[in-house]
Design a protein around this nucleic acid. Structure first.
Lengths: 136, 136
DNA sequence: ATAATTGCAAATGCTTTGCTTGTGA
DNA sequence: TCACAAGCAAAGCATTTGCAATTAT
C-alpha cells in the first residue's frame, strides 16, 4: 500500500528507475505536502547522490501522468501530494502553515453551476481557504 | 473617476511621484488583469524611461496598501487589477486566457462555514474556475 | 533639507535544460 | 542494444535589491 505510486507508474507505463522508485516511495509515504527541496532532503537519506534536478524532473513527470498533484499556495514554492482518491481542497493555517484537507460537495456543485451559467464547462478549479485558528 | 488609485494613494498617505501617478493612471483605466510586463509596456507609452523595477516596486506598494489586487493564476506570472469595490472571484478560459469575474454569495457563505467547522476564522481565500467555452 | 524614490545592473530563488555518462526494458 | 534517464553545472525567468543620483514634501 505504501508503494502505490510505483504501481501507478507501472500501470501508466512510466519507466521506473532506482531514483524514481525512491521518490515514489517517499511520496507514497508522505501524508503532508512537501516541496521539492523537502522531497530531495527526504530522498537523500536513502540515496545521497540523487540530484535535485532529478527530483524536479520526476515530480513533473508524475504530475503530468496524473500520479501526483501540484499546489501553488500563496507565497510558497510548489508543493506536492500523491494524487488523492477523491478530490479535496485545502485550508491553510496562515500562522503555522499547516494544511488541512476538506471536501464540500455543495461548493463543488455551485462551482459547476457558476461555470455553466457563464457558458463554460468546468475543467479545473482551485479553492484555497486561508484562516487562523479560533482560540477557545 | 479614472484617477481613483491616485486618490486612494493620497488617502492612505502613499507618496506620489510622477512614475507612481502614471502607473496609477494606467491601472485605474485598465479593465483587465495585466502582468507587470504589460503594465510596463502601457506606462512606457507615456514615459519611455520608466524602469520595470519601478513598476515592480509600485505594484507591490499598491498591493500592500490594499489599493490593487494581485493574482497568481495557474501557470502565469502575477497579474494585477485595481482593488474591487466588492469581492469577486475569477473564471479563466483555458483556451483563450480570458478572465471573467463572478460573484457567488452561496459559495462565499459555504467557505466561511467550512472554515468555522474546522475551527478556523476565514481570513482570505482563493477561488478560481478554469473552463472551456460551451460551443453552441 | 533630507528621507524616500528612481534607474540601472547585478543578485536572487526556483525551476529547467544541455550535455555527457549511465541504465532499464 | 539503444532510447531514455541521471548528474552536474549552466541557463532561464520573474522578481528583488544595492547603490549612486534624483526628487517630493
Amino acid at each position: 500500500m505504501s508503494y502505490d505510486i510505483e504501481n501507478k507508474c507501472k500501470q501508466k507505463g512510466v519507466r521506473l528507475t532506482d531514483q524514481r522508485k525512491l521518490i515514489a516511495k517517499i511520496m507514497s509515504q508522505s501524508e503532508d505536502h512537501p516541496d521539492v527541496d523537502e522531497l530531495h532532503k527526504r530522498v537523500s537519506q536513502l540515496d545521497d547522490k540523487i540530484s535535485i534536478a532529478t527530483v524536479y524532473r520526476t515530480v513533473k513527470l508524475f504530475e503530468e501522468a496524473g500520479i501526483v498533484a501540484k499546489h501553488d499556495f500563496k507565497g510558497n514554492k510548489s508543493r506536492y501530494e500523491k494524487a488523492p482518491e477523491e478530490h479535496h481542497d485545502h485550508l491553510i493555517d496562515i500562522n503555522t502553515g499547516e494544511i488541512i484537507e476538506f471536501v464540500n460537495e455543495d461548493i463543488e456543485k455551485l462551482q459547476k453551476e457558476v461555470a455553466e451559467k457563464l457558458g463554460y464547462k468546468l475543467v479545473d478549479h482551485r479553492l484555497e481557504l486561508y484562516g487562523s485558528k479560533n482560540k477557545k
